[in-house]
Each structure stands twice: as structure tokens, then as C-alpha cells.
């Protein structure tokens, strides 16, 4: 049996807005196993962002169980959550969130700066390796302003890979990209997934879900659908089908 990376049981998250209580998540249960490529879908207000914050250990559930890589997140303090984020999760954001005027390699090194177990030589080595994995081995010293949107997102992916996380957590990672570039990014995700990396992808675009192996659809804080995708499409093939770009 493959290892369970994420285990969620009857997870609830409530927000108090004045006198009213908003139920953002109303008792959700699911597990994600190692090597899965899961998309979490839902329209705005479905609890998708709340789910993402909890999965990313940026937020704590009101009740229920959330375990990541065997560690129960409940009752962890701010600093312990930071360590979990540092060692177990790789974040990818819609707007890349790279540090401006800072080279690609330094951006990728960032998570390792907060990990005292990694010394500066290992840090550099791992950053170079991660950038090579996303195909930017020749752009180590470019700053974000010298890179295209797709390249910037690749830097961000390299950054998420550098700490060898148990799961990559992507938030609308293709939302700011055109169709061609987003297919390129998706094919990169599929490649990484083939190498055994677990990926959780939060999105509201249905066609992104066709590239993943499993889809969880949220609505009003509940799971509406949770299905295996038997017919996973290859982003690389879709990319080939697109009309040739005028150069």
C-alpha cells in the first residue's frame, strides 16, 4: 500500500464575522496518497481557498483531523507550522511571488535559507539541480524582470522543489499564463508527477483537471465530487495540437 501523504477527517473551518459564523468547510474527509496528482476544483466561495490555506499549513482547522506525512497539524504553534511548511510543502502561486531584483538561483535558494540543516554549498547545488529540472539551467543568474511569465513560474516551481517536499501545492499556478504557456507548465507538472512527486493543484479551470489523475470538486464547503480520472490527457500532446505560433 502506498503511503498516505495527506489524511483529512471531518475537517471543519469556521470564521466568526461579528455575530455570524461562516462555515467555510463543513466536515470534509479525504486522503491523498504518494504519487497522486490531485486537482481541487470549485467556484469562488466553495471553500477552495480555505482548503488550500489549511493544506498549506498557513491556517488551522477549527475541528477535525489534518495529518501531513504522518504529522498531526492540530495544536502546532506558529513556529512549528513554519517548519512543516519549510520541510514538507512546496508552494506555487498564481502570481509567482518571486523576489524582485534577485537572481533565479537566489530565489530558488530561499526556502533553504530558513533550513539550518542545509549549508551554503548544498544549498547552491540543490538550487542549480532544481532549476535544471525545470529546464532553466542556463538562466541561473537572470532576475525575474529578465524572464518571461512562463519562465518565472518555472523558477517558482524550482523553488517549490528545492526542499524535497512531500507535496507540491499549487494555487492557480497557470492562472496568469496564456494557453500555450500553461500547457507547457502543466506538462512540466506531469513530468514531475511521473518522477513520483505528489502534486495538489487548486484551480477553477476545468480543462486543467483533465491533466490530473484525480479531481475533488468542492461546493459550499462540502465535497461534491471526488473521482479518479481514467483518461489522463497528456499536456505535451495538447501542446503539440495547438496551432503553430507565428515567429
Amino acid at each position: 500500500m502506498t503511503k498516505e501523504i495527506i489524511k483529512i477527517e471531518d475537517l471543519k473551518r469556521e470564521f466568526t464575522m461579528g455575530t455570524e459564523t461562516v462555515h467555510a468547510l463543513r466536515g470534509i474527509s479525504f486522503t491523498i496518497k504518494e504519487g497522486e496528482f490531485v486537482t481541487i476544483m470549485g467556484s469562488s466561495g466553495s471553500g477552495k481557498s480555505t482548503m488550500l490555506n489549511i493544506l498549506g499549513c498557513l491556517d488551522q482547522p477549527t475541528s477535525g483531523i489534518y495529518e501531513i506525512d504522518g504529522v498531526s497539524v492540530k495544536d502546532l504553534n506558529r513556529n512549528e507550522l513554519a517548519t512543516i511548511r519549510n520541510e514538507k510543502i512546496g508552494f506555487i502561486f498564481q502570481s509567482y511571488n518571486l523576489l524582485a531584483r534577485t537572481s533565479a538561483i537566489e530565489n530558488v535558494e530561499l526556502p533553504l535559507l530558513y533550513n539550518s540543516k542545509v549549508n551554503s554549498e548544498a544549498r547552491r547545488e540543490r538550487a542549480i539541480k532544481a532549476l535544471e529540472m525545470v529546464g532553466l539551467g542556463d538562466r541561473l543568474h537572470h532576475t525575474p524582470s529578465q524572464l518571461s511569465g512562463g519562465q518565472q513560474q518555472r523558477v517558482a516551481i524550482a523553488r517549490s522543489l528545492v526542499n524535497n517536499p512531500v507535496m507540491i501545492l499549487a494555487d492557480e499556478a497557470t492562472g496568469n499564463l496564456d494557453t500555450r504557456t500553461s500547457y507547457e507548465i502543466m506538462s512540466l507538472f506531469q513530468e514531475l508527477n511521473k518522477q513520483g512527486i505528489t502534486i495538489t493543484f487548486v484551480t477553477h479551470e476545468p480543462d486543467i483537471a483533465t491533466f490530473s489523475s484525480r479531481t475533488i470538486v468542492l461546493k459550499d464547503g462540502d465535497i461534491m465530487q471526488d473521482y479518479k480520472n481514467d483518461n489522463v490527457q497528456s499536456a505535451a500532446e495538447e501542446l503539440a495540437k495547438l496551432p503553430k505560433q507565428d515567429d
Binding site: L58, N79, R85, E87, L99, N115
Partner: peptide, 15 residues
């Protein structure tokens, strides 16, 4: 935003 990112990738409050 940079502070948010640093925290997301594992910076503690003290850092």
C-alpha cells in the same frame, strides 16, 4: 507580500 512569501516557505516570526 515578500514577508508573506518568506513565511510561506518556512520563515519563522523570529526570522
Amino acid at each position: 507580500k515578500e514577508i508573506g512569501l518568506r513565511m510561506a516557505v518556512g520563515a519563522k516570526g523570529a526570522d
